[in-house]
């Protein structure tokens, strides 16, 4: 990881994408089958459901050098496990507040509902996000320190979001 924290014209954003197995991962496969070319900046980590997304995964990605994180799940009402995506949405909302408090631009972390048939949406969202993050430039060192410092509380916020929703 050499010149990562130096903004430059050749800056290539690094994006980690967490896609649920049933809709968004399948959509990304469809984009492939249909040869829809898009920016190579996002790397997909497959999870069974967006409900599996622990907010700490997002923080870990940013800490390890990602400039942006994309979360993809089934459309509301479509989750293979009924409501995992609602839980994801709730956690995402709280996580955003936390990221804002750390001074991390909100465009860096994005949640999208992408159905299994929406290969074109995978293409569009990844292209869009790559451009957006490119404009923002790399995640800065002090932001990374912020994440490291508030690691614990971040995790807790994520959990509370869910507990709250559970009752």
């Amino acid at each position: 990881m050499s010149d990562k924290n130096v903004a430059g014209s050749d800056f290539e954003p690094r994006i980690v994408a967490f896609f649920c197995n049933w809709c968004t991962y399948t959509a990304a496969d469809l984009a492939g089958t249909a040869r829809m070319v898009y920016a190579p900046n996002a790397r997909v980590v497959r999870i069974m459901c967006s409900g599996r997304l622990d907010p700490q995964f997002v923080l870990a990605a940013l800490r390890k050098g990602a400039d942006g994180v994309l979360i993809g799940g089934c459309h509301p009402g479509d989750c293979h496990y009924q409501e995992g995506n609602y839980k994801a949405l709730r956690r995402f909302t709280l996580l955003k507040t936390l990221l804002a408090a750390m001074g991390i631009e909100e465009e860096r972390v994005r949640l999208e509902w992408i159905a299994a048939s929406e290969g074109d949406k995978v293409q569009r969202v990844i292209n869009e996000m790559t451009e957006q993050v490119r404009k923002l430039g790399p995640l800065r060192l002090e932001q990374i320190h912020q994440i490291e410092g508030s690691h614990h509380s971040a995790a807790q916020v994520g959990k509370h979001a869910v507990m709250e929703g559970a009752v």
């Binding site: 069974m48 599996r52 622990d54 700490q56 293979h80 995992g84 839980k87 959990k159 869910v162 507990m163």
Partner: peptide, 21 residues
Amino acid sequence: GCGTCVAACPSGALQQNLFTD
């Protein structure tokens, strides 16, 4: 096997086979 509970567990006691933390 959705793993929603795993992400919610405040103490990391829950884990998901094939998708552990």
